[in-house]
Amino acid sequence: MTAGPLVTVVDDDESVRESLPDLLMEFGYSVRAFPSAEAFLNSDCIGAARCLILDMAMPGMSGLELQQVLAQSGRDIPIVFITASRDETIRALALKRGAVDCLFKPFSESVLLAALNTAFQ
């Protein structure tokens, strides 16, 4: 199971950090979860991550800001945003900035899989 590509989850919501990695592992990915953007940036797996599942609204650095930081530092990690606020404007902005997708919570397994497939194309 640990042989799959590394997917990182950044979300301040504990229930997401608890549930999403298990599902992703069921999909066959390696998973690391972080409670904040800062924690992710300080980790040793930036270079290794092949996909980033990123919450929009977080205390401290927001998801969109992390996206910008990564883009500026030349890290071309595919990003799938997830958010509990159904805000189309934010979604459009994220996509415009190069996100693979932006999923509104709660999202179904198939939607998540589709996004991941796009990310790994």
């Binding site: 919501d13 608890e18 298990d22 599902l23 606020s85 999202f107």
Partner: peptide, 28 residues
């Protein structure tokens, strides 16, 4: 309303993700 929706969506997201995982684990 937006605030409430957000607060409800978080646990719902957990519910759905967990349920999906649960199904996969049982189907393995």
């Amino acid at each position: 309303t937006a605030s409430i929706a957000h607060e409800v969506n978080q646990p719902l997201s957990g519910v759905i993700t967990n349920a999906s995982t649960c199904l996969r684990q049982l189907a393995a």
